[in-house]
Amino acid sequence: MPAPHVAGGYEITVRRGQFWVPGERVRTEYGTVQRAPLFVQWEAPPGEAHPVPLVLVHGGGGQGTDWTGTPDGRPGWATRFVEAGFAVYVVDRCGHGRSPYHPDVVGPMGAPFPYEAARALFLPDEVNDAQTQWTYGPEHLDQLLCPMGPLPADLAESQRLDADRLGRLLDIVGEAVLVTHSAGGPIGWLTADARPEKVVAITAIEPMGPAFAQFPGLGALTWGLTSTEITYDPPAGDPSEVTGRRIPALAGKPVAVVTGGASAFAAFAPQIVEFLAGAGARVRHLHLPDFGITGNGHGLIFEANSDETVKPVVDWILATIR
């Protein structure tokens, strides 16, 4: 196998950079520190890009590298989006990756992400025969786990922080399409709530759900599809009042829910679609087998056929923004 620097596989662009969305300044016994900044890496085609950029929001204990590469070293979806003509902004959610975490400032950490949980989520034994696009060996499972860290123990506060920073990111970059994965899904709904005029559309890849689900050891989607409060109309003073109410920020908003054919998330995706439709979104379920793309599990953004799984998403976004 050739060394990574000679393997090739994607076009090198000349327009890329990075910055942070700062967190709040807080006083501690150590002095004044910053709480939960958000790291942003961006890349754009060498020439003119589509007028609406994409903001890529990773899931669970991952980081922005979920979008930039695959466990076997191929280019990730971020590169394929750039090749399709989009400018992309890839974030490390608060407390993940290059967004620093100190529990004295951000809050207590949840449990570390173990191999057993990774296998249960990304390659469960019960769908081994159907999940034909997980062709990786043990060394690739190591690569999958290396960037995964703990989530903040307070899931609602974690989502609130992420949505606040992403809203301020949109204040900088302007209108954008949000592309979320897994536990990044709630961040998409909350960011739209914070900046409805800046979110053109949302593509939710294997989003966390269904509505009001409980996740032992992690938290609950108390407010429907989010753990922290989101705006309903008429206003909901309590989570028990949410059902049947609209979310003004999602009214008429184009939303795609994308699922893999061998993923357990596909089973409850119709419930997510129904909830979003009831909230007012213009939602569509993009189930990959309907596009002739089979064998994918929850990690469809970095499985062996990731160059194929991205294509229906690119097509949907292009059709939406035109």
Rank of each mutant, 00 (worst) to 15 (best):
I230N: 03
G237V: 02
V26A: 12
G260Q: 01
P210M: 03
E157T: 06
R246T: 11
L276K: 09
E11F: 12
G76D: 03
L218T: 12
P147K: 00
R245A: 04
T203V: 15
S158Y: 05
D233W: 14
E175D: 09
F81H: 01
G280E: 05
A156D: 03
S263T: 06
D142L: 13
G8Y: 10
A304R: 07
R15Y: 10
E175I: 00
P138D: 07
G209P: 07
V91F: 00
P71I: 02
P37V: 08
A304S: 15
Y136H: 07
D164T: 10
A236Y: 09
F212E: 04
L318M: 12
P51S: 10
A281G: 04
R282D: 15
G23M: 04
L144H: 13
D164V: 10
I272S: 08
F302C: 06
T79Y: 04
V242Q: 11
G260H: 01
G295F: 09
I12E: 14
S99R: 04
W67Q: 00
G23R: 03
L121Y: 03
E29F: 06
G174C: 09
S240Q: 12
R119P: 06
T203K: 02
E157V: 02
G219S: 07
R245H: 07
A201W: 03
A267S: 15
D72H: 07
Q143T: 10
A213R: 13
L178D: 03
R168H: 13
D154W: 05
F81D: 01
I205R: 05
L123Y: 12
E43Y: 10
R16V: 05
D104N: 09
P75E: 02
N305S: 09
I172D: 05
M1I: 14
G237A: 04
A204L: 04
F39T: 00
M208H: 01
V199F: 01
A117I: 11
I317F: 13
E274K: 14
V33R: 13
G8K: 10
A163N: 10
E274T: 14
V52K: 10
R245D: 07
A279C: 01
V173T: 11
K253G: 09
S306A: 13
E206V: 03
T65S: 08
A49Q: 07
Y30Q: 15
L38A: 00
D233T: 14
A156I: 04
T320W: 08
K198R: 15
K311G: 05
W316E: 08
N305W: 01
A176C: 12
R245K: 11
T259C: 06
V52E: 10
H102S: 15
S240T: 14
P114R: 11
N296Q: 11
E274D: 15
E24R: 15
N296W: 01
F268G: 05
R80A: 05
P234C: 04
V200H: 13
L288P: 00
G110F: 02
D72R: 01
E175A: 04
Q131G: 11
